[in-house]
């Protein structure tokens, strides 16, 4: 039984890293959103499994938030925004798929080396969980760096945040996990959808962040 518990947790966390890689090479916005929704579903399963094995009912709340908010509400509303802005055809990559994937692999290797070495004495389940979480975090960061579209940067940020939730759920008995996931959801809901996209659209008729770069503060 011990072995099976460990294997399922491992499988789910590992899938999350894999789905992060899938997001890296999506160059259409709609497919990116679909993969992100899948990412959120995998996170939710992973957190629910942690809730079951740690016997920590409050983690189910986090899992449900991830499922409803990140796998359904956010992708749906981003879909609508993209449709309304008419940018669904846009293909956007700053760096090619090949170099991005290579960089991604490098980051995963880095996080495994760092975390597995640093946590040599910790509980093996938590240890691998942390290593995977750091990988997801760094891959999200990579995605934010390699995209120039505001929507996909936000998706990158949300996948980064999924990595954090995975880490928090894996740390046994950590307090405030639910509060943190709520805080993050509020952050995303408020800032991203409510204000920025509307304002950016209102002013530029595009959500391409490179348009913003033209107005660099001092080159007036």
């Amino acid at each position: 039984m011990e072995g099976l518990v460990f294997d399922i947790a491992h499988l789910l966390a590992g899938s999350l890293v894999l789905v992060s890689f899938m997001m890296l090479y999506q160059d259409r916005l709609y497919s990116l959103l679909n993969v992100f929704a899948f990412h959120a579903v995998v996170l939710s399963l992973s957190v629910a499994w942690q809730a079951y094995i740690q016997d920590a009912p409050h983690l189910y709340v986090t899992a449900v938030i991830a499922l409803i908010f990140k796998a359904i509400i956010i992708p749906l509303s981003l879909h609508r925004i993209i449709a309304r802005l008419g940018i669904h055809r846009e293909i956007e990559t700053v760096v090619g798929v090949g170099p991005t994937m290579l960089a991604g692999m490098g980051l995963v290797a880095l996080s495994l080396v760092v975390m597995l070495r640093a946590t040599a004495e910790a509980d093996p389940l938590a240890r691998e969980d942390l290593a995977f979480a750091l990988s997801v975090l760094l891959l999200g960061l990579l995605m934010m760096v390699t995209r120039r579209n505001a929507v996909s940067q936000v998706v990158g940020f949300m996948s980064l945040e999924n990595g954090l939730i995975l880490a928090a759920a894996g740390a046994k008995g950590m307090p405030l996990v639910v509060e943190i996931s709520v805080a993050f959801s509020v952050l995303i809901a408020f800032i991203v959808i409510g204000i920025f996209l509307f304002r950016i659209r209102e002013r530029f008729d595009t959500v391409d962040v490179q348009t913003l770069d033209r107005f660099r503060g001092e080159k007036r």
Partner: peptide, 29 residues
């Protein structure tokens, strides 16, 4: 300019916030 500044602040600030949370989780671990 204000929107660009806020966007940049938001993106960099969020990354900083994310790193800080990961560090906090590690301290707990």
């Amino acid at each position: 300019e204000a929107l660009e500044a806020a966007w940049k602040y938001f993106i960099l600030g969020s990354v900083g916030i994310a790193f800080a949370l990961f560090g906090t989780i590690l301290v707990y671990m």
